[in-house]
Write a protein that binds this DNA or RNA. Structure first.
Length: 494
RNA sequence: CGGGGUGUGGCCCAGCCCGGUUAAGGCGCCUGCUUUGGGAGCAGGAGAUCGCAGGUUCGAAUCCUGCCACCCCGACCA
């Protein structure tokens, strides 16, 4: 057991907080609701960024950067957008400080009031569409496929590291298209990109679906989402992609000349994933010993811990370790030989377990004599995950093992999800499963916001999505008894 | 924004009710020696204007008032 780590079964949210802290991922800062992402945590985020960025470019997108400040007047141009974000905005009202009267510090200079207040972006649709108006005149200017990596601010009342912070890092793609179909296809494409990334790199299985009207992004006509299931049976929205129709084009008067010379409004999408993915990563794989990382996102994939008494022993271990390190680096494996003499082996074992390093090699004098190493897999803690392996062909064995771990974590998570997905046909059954088991619940719904709301009020469960790849199945709504064409996914969500 | 809780060396915290020597202990840190196949042991050492600002008092970590921050529980959300 990780020393001092609360067990998941005892207090799941405490366990989560401790992992974030003890694995050195992030900490809360002096600023309310804002976190410091520490180097080890940021290294994981950078790996996510690198792969996502590659996938965006592969699908034809380019990066750009728009201002963090948005004039209040821009913000108010799209009505439903304002409704969605107004309650959680940080606002810049002044541009200067001055020494306070009592000389004990600085105060806001009341003479330096801004003519127009600036909103710290909670998302960038408005500033971007104000810009796109200038970029777009003709169908020849379309499509515009732009992404930006940025920070955004949403003034949340209650925050949790990575899952909900007042400031967070994300990427937001904003595209402009000639036709509705093209924009819709883009929104769907990016959802598939997200799903592929989250499943292949994070080893987190996701459901792909569409949001109901009440869960939709403020200003969108259709919101696609990927939903993951955490180990405590709660759902986590891991990414969204929106078909914005012509709402923003109309609000910002973005028209283009068609081939025929007519003026038409542009069709839009936006899509984003955030540092919240870190929360999904932690809560999907980690165990009571600490963080568990899929190899593709692990800053350190293999750590080598020497065990020795004498300088001679250390030297012979070190000689071998250095050769192995180089061999692994050539194969693209990120490896660390921990030759720190100030920490004992046992301490290091626990530390790298807490940090989720996928493979640990321990090498002692006995191994040197026998031509072996002790290989421990983080995905199977304890003795079962340990084996003596030969130094012959070790680098290849390690590469193969990393792949196995990557695939294994995904299968395990998928099995967990399957075991925690339940179909129900009555409201009684629904409430019982929700209370005793949690997880995803597939149930018939009559399609009305009224029913959705009643269920939410009575059980706290929300409709996570209507699945994209699902077959129609006639039934009756568990709440109203009215006809339903297909099941939707309910869960308690983060 | 409502309800509850907590602020004391880098971290965890005792002390606070009932004011009064040098603010105790553990982790970590520094030095030395001994250790080393699952978070080492011993000895010595450094490190604190007790969240901030007022007030009461001969005297405040302790009592009073105000403020700030953080955590937990609710309403809102990626």
């Amino acid at each position: 057991m990780g020393k001092g780590l609360t067990k998941r079964s005892e207090n799941y949210s405490e366990w989560y907080n401790q992992i974030v802290s003890k694995a050195d991922l992030a900490e809360s800062s002096g600023v309310r609701g804002c976190m410091v992402i520490k180097p080890y945590g940021f290294a994981i985020w950078e790996k996510m960024q690198a792969e996502l960025d590659r996938m965006f470019k592969e699908t034809g997108h380019q990066n750009a950067y728009f201002p963090i400040f948005i004039p209040k007047s821009y913000f108010s141009k799209e009505a439903s957008h304002v409704d969605g974000f107004a309650k959680e905005c940080a606002i810049v009202t002044h541009y200067r400080l001055k020494n306070s009267e009592d000389g004990e510090g600085v105060v806001v200079d009341p003479d330096a009031k801004l003519e127009e207040e600036l909103i710290v972006r909670p998302t960038s649709e408005t500033i971007i569409w104000d810009t796109y108006r200038k970029w777009i005149q003709s169908y020849r200017d379309l499509p515009i496929l732009v992404n930006q990596w940025a920070n955004v601010v949403r003034w949340e009342m209650r925050t949790r590291l990575f899952l909900r912070t007042a400031e967070f890092l994300w990427q937001e793609g904003h595209t402009a298209h000639e036709t509705k179909d093209e924009a819709m296809a883009e929104a769907e494409q990016m959802l598939h990109v997200y799903a592929k990334f989250v499943e292949n790199f994070m080893a987190v299985p996701v459901l792909k679906g569409t949001k109901t009207e009440s869960e939709r992004f403020a200003g969108a006509l259709e919101t696609f989402c990927i939903e993951a299931l955490m180990q405590d049976g709660k759902a986590l929205q891991a990414g969204t992609s929106h078909f914005l129709g012509q709402n923003f084009a109309k609000a910002f008067d973005v028209k283009f000349a068609t081939k025929e010379g007519a003026q038409e409004y542009v069709w839009a999408t936006s899509w984003g994933v955030s540092t919240r993915l870190m929360g999904a990563l932690i809560m999907t794989h980690s165990d009571d010993y600490g963080l568990v990382l899929p190899p593709k996102l692990a800053p350190i994939q293999v750590v080598i811990v020497p065990i020795y008494k004498t300088p001679e022993e250390f030297e012979s271990i070190s000689n071998y370790a250095i050769v192995l390190v180089n061999e692994l680096k050539e194969k693209g494996v990120s490896v660390k030989f921990d030759d720190d003499d100030n920490k004992r082996a046992g301490w290091k074992f626990a530390e790298y377990e807490m940090k989720g390093v996928p493979i640990r090699l321990a090498i002692g004098p006995k191994d040197i004599d026998q031509g072996t190493v002790e290989l421990s897999r983080r995905d199977t803690p304890g003795k079962e995950g340990k084996q003596q392996v030969s130094q012959n062909g070790l680098a290849d064995v390690l590469c193969r093992t990393l792949d196995e771990i990557q695939v294994g974590l995904y299968s395990r998570a998928k099995e967990f999800r399957a075991a925690n997905t339940t179909s129900v046909d009555t409201y009684e059954e629904f409430k019982q499963v929700l209370k005793e088991k949690g997880g995803f619940i597939l149930a018939h719904w009559d399609g009305t916001p009224e029913t959705e709301n009643k269920i939410k009020e009575e059980t706290k469960a929300t409709i996570r999505c209507e699945l994209m790849d699902t077959e129609d199945e006639a039934g009756v709504c568990i709440y109203s008894g009215n006809p339903s064409a297909r099941r939707v996914v309910f869960a308690i969500a983060y």
